[in-house]
């Protein structure tokens, strides 16, 4: 892996932390807002907080999949070259 490629991947995956946090916060805010609209406190807050956690987990899964794909491509290149 070249140095610039390494730096690019480093930056790409370093963005994951903020995206996880943002997902949880967005889920929570949506839940609180919907609860205020429908007066169902605290149920929608809890449900949407769960969705937020799930969205965070999905971001991680997506990143891991992308990472595995990259690793495979690298192996292929090594075998060819």
């Amino acid at each position: 892996m070249s140095r610039s490629q390494f730096l690019r991947d480093l930056l790409k995956f370093s963005t994951l932390g903020l995206e996880m946090g943002a997902a949880v916060v967005i889920g929570l805010l949506m839940g609180v807002y919907l609860d205020r609209q429908f007066g169902t406190r605290p149920w929608l807050t809890m449900v949407f907080l769960g969705f937020g956690f799930a969205a965070a987990a999905r971001a991680v899964i997506r990143a891991v999949k992308a990472g595995l794909l990259m690793e495979e491509e690298e192996k292929d290149e090594e075998e060819k070259g």
């Binding site: 903020l18 995206e19 943002a22 967005i26 949407f48 799930a54 969205a55 971001a59």
Partner: peptide, 18 residues
């Protein structure tokens, strides 16, 4: 669907807040 929706709104937030 709601999970993806939250993920996409989180993209806006993480891009801008970063």
């Amino acid at each position: 669907f709601p999970i993806e929706l939250i993920g996409h709104i989180a993209r806006v937030m993480s891009l801008s807040v970063r």
